[in-house]
Structures are given as structure tokens and as C-alpha cells.
Simulated assay, not measured.
Amino acid sequence: MGPTRRRDLAVTAVVVAVLGYVAVSLLYRWFPPITAWTGVSLLAVAVVEAAWAFHVRARIGDGKIGDGPGRLHPLAVARAVMIAKASAWVGAVAVGFWASVLAYVWPRRGELKVAGEDAPGVVVAVLSALALVFAALWLEHCCKSPDDPSEDADGVSGRLPGTG
């Protein structure tokens, strides 16, 4: 299992945004009101993941990974990686969806009263979803062992196979 590729997340967000825009265009009139609180749950998860990332990074840096008191169990780190990967994908889908809503609402905020009322909440949701993606990628990065070979932004090792 390799690091989550940013390119794959970006493609997912764009595909969801395009499909979402079509859906929003057809279904927006039945949407409930979108408030600033709508996307805050994504931001809360992002904050928790970022805090956990700093904790894991500090433990790895101090060499306090292992089984025993005061140490971070390796399975906890592995679970954090899985949570980070899942959160990055959920965040990418949420970014795409909320970007599609923003693309629909923003140009109409002057002519449709409801679009003007929804716009600030949609902006908060987009930013919260972006924060979740960044926090998830940061957590995944912080879970790497100090012995891992360096990898570029696409998750491809700079070494040739078999050159260890």
C-alpha cells in the first residue's frame, strides 16, 4: 500500500463536481437551507486528524513506537493511516460536491434570495472539506516511518525496482 496520490484525489473531486453540478441544477429547489454549520463537521474531523498527526509525528520522532506504557502501538499508527486514507477520499468527494453547489449558487446569489443566503454556508463547507483533505494527507505523511525512502508528490519512489 502506497501513499494516497493527490492526482487521484483531484480527479475524483473534479468528476464529482461535474456530476454534482448536473444534480444540483436539477435538485437545488428541494435542498434544505445551507447554513455556516452545514460543513463544520468536516472541519471538526480535520482538526482532530491534524492534532493526531502532530501527536503521531512527535511519538515517531522520539522513538516511542512499540508495545508498552507511554508508547504508541504500531497498530494504532496503522489504523491512523487507514483513517487518513479514508478521510482523504471522503474529503475529495465532499470538495467536489460542495464545489458544484458553490458553482451553482455563487452566480445566482444576486438574483435568487435563497442562493444568496446559502452562499456563505457553501463557502464554509468547501473550505472545511479542503481542510479535511489536507489534514488527512498530513496525518498519512506523519505516520511514515523515518526509514521510508523519500517519495515525490505522486507517491512514486525515486529508486528503481530492485535497487533497494
Results as ranks from 00 to 15, higher is better:
M1E: 10
R5I: 03
R6C: 09
D8T: 01
D8V: 04
L9M: 09
A10F: 13
A10T: 02
L19A: 10
A23Y: 10
L27H: 08
R29C: 13
F31N: 04
P33D: 13
V40Q: 01
S41C: 11
L42P: 05
V45K: 14
V45I: 13
A46M: 02
A46T: 06
V48A: 10
A50S: 11
A50P: 08
A51S: 08
A51P: 00
A58G: 00
I60A: 03
I60N: 09
G61D: 01
K64H: 09
K64F: 05
G66K: 00
G66W: 09
G70R: 01
R71T: 01
V77L: 08
V81R: 14
I83K: 12
W89G: 01
W89Q: 10
W89P: 05
W89F: 09
V90P: 06
V95A: 08
G96D: 00
W98Q: 06
W98P: 02
S100H: 03
V101Y: 08
V105Y: 12
R108H: 13
R109A: 02
G110H: 05
G110C: 11
L112E: 15
A115N: 08
A115C: 07
A115L: 03
G116W: 06
A119Y: 14
A119H: 14
P120L: 09
V124C: 04
A125C: 05
A125D: 01
V126W: 05
L127F: 12
S128A: 06
L130C: 12
L132Y: 02
L132D: 08
L139A: 00
C143M: 01
K144W: 12
P146T: 02
D147T: 04
D152N: 10
A153G: 12
A153L: 13
G155V: 01
V156L: 02
S157L: 12
S157C: 10
S157G: 11
G158V: 15
R159H: 12
G162S: 10
G162R: 02
G162E: 11
G164M: 12
